[in-house]
Design a protein around this nucleic acid. Structure first.
Lengths: 203, 203
DNA sequence: CATAATGGATAGCACTACTATCGAAGTCAA
DNA sequence: TTGACTTCGATAGTAGTGCTATCCATTATG
């Protein structure tokens, strides 16, 4: 198909497709002449992933890195997540102390060297944000966070498809990024449900 | 204290403080003359919250709404979360079918009318993003999401402090927003830990 | 009284995610 | 073959966001 058909089928303006091509998010079509190229279903599928990523709040630059991880998966399975996570974590400038974060994530089964520094730094920064605002997670709530998050992660990793490397890569890379909005959205609903259960007189 | 002292103590440039004043995120100081005002610890504390919110990825506009919720809490406790959530949810333009989302959140204990439409729409949009990308949460993983998220929400709501209305408001409003980055960061660590447990030969 | 700080207003800047326009080259129906 | 239409590639422009810089009249302050 030509670019205009790709545009209408994906619901993405031609100018925007060109933009994604320029940015390297979308692979080029097959050139049939100096001013013509044809696109196929891989482009359509890719466009859908791009839009899902960007629609999930992932920036164009981050999306590019996530897609690069999809295209060039590392040989070792356990490096996949690192790549996916690195893609969406902002570059760290300015050191931050991860000691408290390390102590916390031991409750997740973490031991030194078990994960990238970048994700650990992410925990440290989140803790810093809370502290800065003068907000403290109650002592009885934090263990619930740790246990629940651990259960989530274990189920996710247990669910990694093994029928093909490609399916595994897709699952890990997209899952770690695209599921985030779902979990946050579910938490908001669950909070309101729990609040209703606690504070609203039964009717 | 004067604005320059507030600036150095909070680590926020004077120009930025003026910007927050203009945007209504920070309340005005007490005017002592036509060109002078004094600020106190409430301003310092507020600035820290503002920075924590903005540093957590909340936009200036959203932060303004979160802070407004802090300042003018609704009379009924169960409306608090709705306000906090509404503050960080983007305005919906374009209808979306929430039927599938509703079916899903029944697993959280949700029943019709138990929460704002906006948060339900958030679930629907998250699901739409996943579907668009051709990503499906495995059937055995979704129940874990629901159970874990429900446990989290219940612990959080059970932890609402009751010693003062102000403490409760702070906890609910800031907690629902500022804890998000922590949960996502913890999930990334937990995923890498689970991945290491599954894919890395024990050493 | 000279220097510095402040408030208030306005303008500018860097970045992001597009969007619009243009000219040369190519396609396709009549 | 003609002529409208499409495409490519490049370049430039736009809207929104989160500051940042400058200016000026008006106060403090040493």
């Amino acid at each position: 198909m030509r670019i205009s058909e790709l545009s209408t089928r994906a619901g993405v303006p031609v100018a925007t497709i060109k933009f994604y091509l320029r940015e390297g998010l979308l692979h080029e079509g097959v050139r049939t002449s100096a001013t013509q190229a044809t696109y196929d279903d891989t482009h359509l599928q890719r466009l859908r992933i791009i839009r899902a990523l960007i629609g999930s709040g992932v920036s164009v630059a981050e999306s590019g890195r996530v897609l690069a991880a999809l295209d060039d998966p590392p040989a070792e399975a356990h490096r996949l997540l690192g790549m996916a996570h690195a893609a969406v974590l902002p570059n760290v400038d300015g050191e931050i102390d991860t000691a408290e974060a390390e102590r916390l994530v031991e409750g997740l089964g973490w031991r030194p060297g078990m994960c990238d520094d970048a994700v650990l730094t992410g925990v440290a920064r989140a803790l810093q944000g809370l502290e800065q605002a003068g907000f403290a997670v109650p002592a009885e709530v934090m263990p619930v966070y740790l246990d629940s998050i651990r259960a989530i992660a274990r189920a996710e990793i247990a669910g990694v498809p093994t029928e093909s490397a490609e399916a595994a890569v897709r699952y890990v890379v997209l899952g770690s990024v695209l599921v985030e909005p779902l979990l946050l959205a579910l938490r908001r609903v669950a909070e309101q449900v729990a609040s209703a259960e606690r504070f609203v007189a039964s009717d």
